[in-house]
Design a protein around this nucleic acid. Structure first.
Lengths: 200, 200, 200, 200
DNA sequence: TCATAAGCGAGACGGTACGTCGTGTCTTACG
DNA sequence: CGTAAGACACGACGTACCGTCTCGCTTATGA
């Protein structure tokens, strides 16, 4: 029986064999070091003491491999703990995104560019990355509703991702990486006024 | 007298010979079609019926060429006309960015990833792209201050680029390209509440 | 009792289990179809519905496998019947070689090239192929001596294999495969004049 | 203007640029050292300090490259000088073939096997190799006719290549490489009796 | 008017990554 | 235990792209 068959899908998301996990982590390591297009499959393979066939059996191209690795990295981000207030939760969330953006700043631009070209990659990316982000944001907002800090109707389906989007964009930005001050400003001057505004 | 000598730097920014303009526009065309890393210099050269030497004489690498082309594309965006109100100006600005994002959605991710690797490219990118964006935003805000719609102290140096950043991010986003509704929501539910908030 | 134990070496040459015979014949089939280096072990294994381990347990490399298969093929060539005359025997022998060359024309070049590299394979090849050929030729010549057609001293140890060698060479030859006329000419114009020459 | 255009076809056979000659000679060197299928294009390229593209631009596959190199090697064999007698000429010719076979013994089997698979390679091989051999043999025989040693009608179109064929076969033969004695025996005991036989 | 020089198209070239495929080793589960 | 199935490391193949280079051609000025 093959390695893969040992897997047991106990929850949502793919369940990876050990070899797959190891390959993805090696890939992620290199992705963070060198960015998307300086990363080479040969180097991944050399570091993991693996064979190209072993990689290409699972992921049909470099793009698939890298997107899978990226998703694997994202999947490990924890939930946001309840700090007791909306402001605290948002600041915490912002700082988590900040940390994550710091390590993959060089990578995500290339990854997203790659993702735009393939519906298959798009599906993976959407499921693993966007949905995870959305869940983070919505859990924070739900808690705020429960606390009575905001009303449900200020939560927009259109721009729920403003906070992560801006942090990621700034992480991409070559000359203005985001700082803690960026988070504070964004939360205090933009998000809170927006979420607590009096609706027309 | 050589082509290059025809150039006359009459203002800020480079002054391009006809050949250079043509090469950049061909590059831009391909960049929009295929994205950064599927674009090949050979294809640029073939479309422009040029020679690789002609390209590499001017731009020492593919990255330089593409960033120059990208900057050339950005340089052509007009100023935002005065619509009479802050809200009108912001909506108009959002729609301009929307249009621009639509065509370069596949490109800018790769470009930004590339830019992160080279200080020289970073300088070009910053000057041509970020400064132009900042000027657009600030001109809109200054007009609003002049009209008395907002006070100068709500204008942040930290997150002045929230609008363009979010539009660009969504343009990058494979499954959620921005729409006009995105702009309206962003302006009405976020930017205006933030800009007209009562300062603590 | 295992398959292997069924074997009983009753005479010279290896005694093969059924599985081994089947594998060699599948190999031979493919060898005749595709030649030495386009033949793949995977394809042999697939056709025989066997496992690579099963093959490699018996023959330590592709070369060993193919040479064994080749030898197996050669082993099945019958003896030359007595036609009553040297000329008839030689023509018959030539035609047997012709038939055999027709099917392995694409194979023997590669096999011989491979054999040159390994003393072990050389021994197998020599025993199975050359010795068998020599015995065929010598049996024909001995009969001719018995009939009084030739004297023993015209039989050379140096070039006893002229007939098979030439037929094989021509079978290898891409544009001039041997025909029956080739055999007749060789026998009548070369071999018989040589064998019946008056010795100096 | 490209290198190739510098060529001027002054005689039969292709005229090679310097780079081509160098690549073929490197290939030939490796072919003699390692035989057909242990030869790698990467090694050729490394030794010649060339690029794979440079090789594959000219020869679309390893097989084409090797056959071209082989032909290039054959092309350099000189003519057979007039020794004054048919026997002397044949012995000389035999020894030339002997020398050539010694160095390419490991190679020619693989080459011929390869040649059998492609009509294109067959054409090259036939033109460069067989025709050259035929001309050598026929020049020797013509001189013998001129000297009155033999009559034209003993010269067969069917088996003119008996001498080279046998020498090559024995060069291929793993356990019986040809020697000078082989040549002498072949000439004295077979070829001369055949060529000077009284016709029926 | 002509020559000298500079830019140009064309494209060969060295290098390197990609993705495919074949060999020989190994492991797992079945009979 | 032998076998079918097939994953795996290794490494070659043939393709494609980048950035460098050389070749003649054209054009455009300066003698």
């Amino acid at each position: 029986m093959s390695d893969a068959a040992v897997q047991h899908e106990t929850e949502t998301g793919p369940c990876l064999s050990e070899r797959e996990t190891q390959l993805l982590e090696t890939t992620l390591e290199l992705l963070y070091e060198t960015g998307y297009d300086k990363l080479t499959v040969d180097e991944v393979v050399a570091r993991a003491r693996a064979s190209k066939a072993t990689v290409y059996r699972r992921w049909p191209s470099k793009a698939d491999l890298v997107v899978a690795a990226f998703a694997h990295g994202v999947r490990q981000i924890a939930t946001v703990p309840d700090t007791g207030s909306l402001r605290g939760d948002l600041l915490h969330l912002g700082n988590v995104l900040l940390d994550h953006g710091r390590c993959n700043g060089a990578a995500i631009g290339g990854v997203m560019a790659e993702v735009k070209r393939s519906p298959k990659l798009r599906a993976v990316f959407e499921r693993e990355f966007l949905d995870a982000r959305r869940e983070l944001v919505h859990s924070v907002l739900r808690r705020a509703v429960d606390r009575g800090e905001i009303t449900p109707d200020v939560i927009s389906d259109e721009i729920w991702d403003l906070l992560p989007a801006y942090v990621i964009f700034r992480s991409l930005s070559p000359s203005r990486p985001p700082t803690e001050k960026t988070i504070v400003t964004l939360v205090d001057d933009v998000l809170l006024p927006s979420l607590t505004r009096t609706l027309r």
